[in-house]
Design a protein around this nucleic acid. Structure first.
Lengths: 345, 345
DNA sequence: TTGTACGCGTTATCAG
DNA sequence: CTGATAACGCGTACAA
């Protein structure tokens, strides 16, 4: 009972050949019913499990998907759950690796999984990553690879993304509609696509309403509560301080909120605030923070579906791009004008 | 460039045998320096990567660890990060599977990984799980298995746990010291060890201060904000309502807080509140919620270390139990008496 | 209907 | 110092 039973063991015991056992096991058509019964019975008794390693080696397929994510925060965990859901259904097992937003770590993880451990990858790139050679290796091996959430033009692959532009636009337009005039943005790292897209949405909304963007009101800082806190302090001590702030993540919104409170300003009266992600915390603080919700679970599911598809599809799918729409949830932090009927809790 | 290069390719090109190549590759002592150079050079050029599958098949070792967790919430994600950290260092790759607190899912995941995909398991059991046969199979195969966080007496294995009793005790003692007399507890599911341990700590603290526990003040409910909200509503509408509540998770504390606010009661004056996990949110709501901090990242690291150890250790380690201490972080929600010097933000 | 022989990529053993 | 051979567990042409 120590070593797991193999086909050989069964064959030997039953005095048949391994091929017969193999066939019986997989319901091959041409096998004597008696033999099959015997094989089934014995394999049951020995608790036989086919060795996946041997199978993979032979078929050159592992039925594993390598998932590389920068972290496992609230949003990312939801996405991973979505991937998991679909993958499991399709008979794939998911290997999740965190790069911790580290370029080096990302390379190590990719290389490890690449060594015949997985059939392909579903990837969200780290914010540190500016060179994509390690991912291009995946494509050179003709392995399917899907990029999700943190997509980049430097990596041609089927991808699923949030309409970040629209998210930035919704947030900013809402602030304008609430009568805010000097709207600042706390954007993320400069090389990160999602960061720039959200900012482009911001700029577009300003333009639509003929508000001139002020470079002083555009701050780049890390996805980090602490940095956002400091950046907001600086914004608030400007001679002509902003009367609203749009932060491209909720963690940053929290940092901004703390700085606003420290300054003794009231939301939404003195200053408006909108975040991004719609994490549970936004509805729990006082005042509640308006935030752009992204369908994270759904996005993960779509990514996995795209992966499965490109698995069974020979042609090039690197043009495929799915875009999911975000939806602004309005709360007290930005609501100066009482709404008709659209308040969200 | 399509198929990955193998030892055979190199051997053929260089007119040597595969064994020689294999040896040269692994710095075996007895190989001609010229030959080695040639092999190294070519393998570099062909970008040769040893096939892990073949290796694993041969050596009956995958260098993968199966990690099965009930979810990927804030605390669990930190623990997984800790596991990852140590595992990577030790040359292991981690396969994370979420059971989603589902018994059936847990079984499926375990079976999949068991089929020669991993060398062993690091497990935190789902709250639904009352039968442990699927995990016992792991032990029957003599695979190393470490249980962490959600440990259970029904599963004899090396384990790492938080001193939940102490956490419950610290929280309750603190409330007593703050002058609260009728202290309620929102405990988790009845069959969950961590839930009962925290409650035992609660009971012990009451006993120490000669307060008689009131069965009406002991509520079992799911780890869920909604349930906690309802349970708290009921508690607060009792004739002799509690003057403090200890919830064994922060999500539940949030639920309780919402019910308290709805009722128009003020913390800490009218009622005290202490949670568990010290999630970031506890310091961001108003008032800040006191909470028992657990060293999640550290706990994950210890679990992985224990795993590595039991990997290289033949003897039975199922007696080994590491217990980490939690630490109460005191915030406004429970602080009636101004402290000397121990306030935490 | 069943068995033989081979290959997947690698390493260990033994012989040279 | 190097090469041939067997083996890990399985599937599959091909032969019987």
């Amino acid at each position: 009972m120590d070593k797991p039973a193999t086909i050989k063991d069964i064959a030997r015991t039953l005095n048949v050949s391994t091929s017969t056992v193999s066939r019986a096991m997989r319901n091959a058509p041409d096998v004597n019913i008696e033999t099959r019964k015997a094989v089934m019975a014995l394999s049951e008794e020995l608790n036989y499990q086919p060795n996946k390693l041997a199978l993979s080696l032979k078929q050159k397929q592992t039925h594993n998907i390598g998932v590389i994510v920068p972290n496992l925060d609230y949003v990312m965990a939801s996405m991973v759950k979505g991937i998991d859901e679909v993958a499991l259904e399709a008979g794939y097992t998911v290997m999740v690796c965190q790069s911790n937003e580290s370029f080096g770590r990302e390379i190590v993880n990719t290389r490890r999984l690449l060594d015949s451990l997985v059939d392909g990858f579903i990837i969200s790139v780290s914010s540190e990553t500016k060179v994509f050679d390690h991912f291009k290796k995946i494509q050179e091996k003709k392995m399917p690879m899907v990029v999700f959430d943190r997509v980049t033009p430097f990596l041609m692959a089927p991808r699923v993304r949030l309409d970040n532009f629209d998210g930035g636009f919704q947030a900013t337009e809402h602030l304008v509609e609430q009568g805010y005039k000097r709207i600042a943005i706390l954007a993320g790292p400069k090389n990160l696509g999602i960061s720039n897209e959200r900012m482009d949405g911001y700029l577009a909304a300003l333009k639509k309403y003929k508000l001139k963007p002020d470079p002083d009101l555009i701050i780049h800082c890390d996805f980090n509560q602490q940095y956002a806190f400091i950046a907001t302090q600086e914004l608030l001590s400007m001679k002509k301080r902003p009367d609203a702030i749009f932060t491209i993540s909720d963690r940053m919104a929290i940092g901004a909120m703390l700085a606003i409170k420290e300054r003794g300003l009231k939301m939404p009266h003195d200053i408006g605030l909108v975040g991004f992600n719609n994490e549970p915390i936004t509805s729990l603080v006082t005042p509640g923070i308006s935030s752009v919700d992204q369908p994270a679970f759904e996005l993960g599911k779509v990514a996995a579906k795209l992966f499965i598809e490109s698995m069974h599809h020979d042609g090039d799918m690197s043009d495929v791009e799915e875009t999911l729409k975000p939806k602004l949830h309005i709360r007290e932090s930005s609501l100066r004008i009482q709404p008709k009927n659209t308040r969200s809790k």
